[in-house]
Computed example of a mutant assay.
Amino acid sequence: MTSRGTWAAAVLTLFPEMFPGPLGLSLAGKAMERGRWSLKTVDIRSFATDAHRTVDDTPFGGGPGMVLKPDVVDAALRAETTPGPRIYLSPRGRVVDQRRIRELVEGPGAVLLCGRFEGLDQRVIEEHALEELSLGDFVLSGGEPAAIAILDACVRLLPGTVGAPETLIEESFEAGLLEYPHYTRPQVWRGRAVPEVLLSGNHAKIKAWRQAAAEAATKGRRPDLWDRYQARTAARQNSNGTERATGPLAGAIEEEV
């Protein structure tokens, strides 16, 4: 996080009552109470100038749905002074990943613009050089749930939000892999036993098992991540002139995951 102090977020939306929502609870809510971050909501409709507070209009060229008006959204963006990148939540955007989340946290904050209807007039996107981000290859009713998800991902990385910071290191995506499986008491549940290696007390073997389990899960469930992980590993091998160690239980775990 920047040395300026509180990480600031502003959300431009047609539905400010959706916030803080879950962001006001649990870790994010406690972090807000402690001043780790702040959340400002801006009602886009308040920048409409006609008697009906119109924020949308029919698209040029025809077609279904409505489009957010450029003059209204432009006025909202120009009035907003929260520092940081300006992000438009859109299914057309680049899929956000953990690396981008970490980049956002390292800055002073972010302004998130929530799309609605068929989207936003392209000229506003170009005028304000908005960064378009998406949660994935699916469509939501609006950008608000995506904004909540992105802010939650950011806030939990702020210093002091998570009680044990080391828990953030081994999470999914942090090392380019999905996270390994977790187990807790009872040791045997419905005939399923915890893997013996986790009961061994041998930290080196446990670490190797977890690495192999993470690799197996990533290879089986997210081949896109696995390919990128292998490419980065190969690049490190070439630069270091060393061979990558493979977990001794990788073959057995790959059958389980």
Rank of each mutant, 00 (worst) to 15 (best):
T49A: 10
V42K: 02
A79P: 05
G115W: 00
T49S: 12
R78I: 06
Q98I: 08
E103H: 04
G29A: 08
I148G: 00
E170H: 11
S200W: 04
S3T: 13
L178A: 00
K205R: 15
N240R: 11
I148F: 01
R34F: 05
T184A: 03
I150F: 09
D74N: 08
E33G: 07
L104F: 13
P16W: 03
L198G: 12
R100F: 13
A204T: 09
P64Q: 14
R92Y: 15
T13R: 00
R228A: 15
N238H: 09
R34M: 11
A252D: 15
G107V: 12
L130T: 02
W226N: 01
V197Y: 02
L23Y: 13
E255Q: 11
A252R: 04
V72H: 02
A231H: 14
G35N: 09
L104H: 12
R236K: 11
S26A: 12
L25I: 05
W37A: 01
G201L: 09
A9D: 02
A235P: 02
L112E: 10
L23V: 10
F138I: 10
P85E: 12
I253K: 00
Q187D: 13
V194F: 11
G5P: 07
E171M: 05
W37F: 06
R36V: 15
T6I: 09
L158Q: 11
A217I: 15
A149N: 03
A193T: 13
P181L: 05
G84W: 05
S46W: 07
T41D: 11
I87T: 07
G201E: 07
R99E: 15
M1V: 12
R4Q: 14
R45L: 00
L14T: 01
W189N: 05
F47Y: 15
V105G: 06
A149T: 12
I253H: 01
R232D: 15
G62R: 07
P195I: 03
F117H: 14
T218N: 12
E170I: 04
R4P: 02
L23A: 09
G115D: 00
A28W: 00
R192M: 14
H128R: 07
R53F: 03
F19T: 02
L130V: 05
D43S: 08
W189K: 07
V11K: 00
G21E: 05
H182M: 12
V72F: 04
D57M: 04
G201V: 08
R244L: 02
P159K: 09
S239K: 07
V257E: 13
L89G: 00
G62I: 12
L135C: 11
A31D: 11
I101G: 03
G176L: 12
M66C: 04
R221M: 14
V111C: 08
V73S: 03
G109M: 10
A245R: 10
D43N: 11
R123F: 13
Q237W: 10
G136W: 10
A8S: 14
Q98E: 14
G163H: 14
A76K: 07
D224F: 13
A193S: 14
S141K: 01
P22S: 09
R4Y: 13
A129E: 15
E132R: 06
A217K: 03
S172N: 02
D56H: 03
T161I: 03
W226A: 01
S239P: 01
G119H: 07
V124D: 02
D152L: 09
M32T: 06
G65Y: 14
T6D: 04
D97C: 05
P70F: 09
A217P: 01
T218D: 14
L120C: 08
E254D: 14
